[in-house]
């Protein structure tokens, strides 16, 4: 079959439409960076923050996560691949035995999770790691 210009156009439009549909609705890197800067007042150095999470989460609806940073007054968690990057922020006090907390989070897809810690002296630290999210097909 010879391809006419009209066919080609239809094909291109179809591909574009398919591409649009397949575009995952996720936070872009700019939004993540903005959230980090708003919280930390700049880009923090990497290191000094523990970010505990499963390497592969069996279900993205409930992913256990733990963060810790010695001397932190607050730790913010961001999910770079969610529709909105914000997840939650822990605030520690003089009563905290250590600056460590755990919770369970929703991840829409495999993505980097970021933890940003604000220290008592005003300095900031950051950790980033990928969590693979299983998209299982089984069981309504």
């Amino acid at each position: 079959m010879q391809m006419t210009r009209r066919d080609l156009f239809a094909l291109a439009a179809g591909l574009a439409a398919a591409g649009l549909i397949r575009m995952p609705a996720h936070a872009d890197e700019a939004k993540v960076e903005a959230a980090i800067k708003e919280f930390a007042g700049g880009m923090p150095e990497t290191g000094g923050v523990e970010l505990g999470a499963p390497e592969i989460a069996e279900n993205g609806n409930t992913v256990p996560i733990e963060v810790a940073a010695a001397g932190a007054t607050s730790i913010m968690i961001l999910a770079s691949g969610n529709p909105n990057p914000g997840v939650g922020t822990f605030h520690f006090t003089a009563m905290s035995a250590e600056s460590r907390a755990s919770t369970r989070i929703r991840l829409a897809q495999t993505q980097d999770v970021v933890a940003v810690a604000k220290m008592a002296d005003g300095s900031t630290k950051m950790a980033r790691r990928e969590i693979k999210v299983t998209i299982g097909g089984c069981g309504g």
Partner: peptide, 12 residues
């Protein structure tokens, strides 16, 4: 849950 951080390293 403190085990999890250790687990994360082991999982790699």
């Amino acid at each position: 849950m403190n085990k999890m951080i250790a687990f994360g390293a082991a999982a790699v």
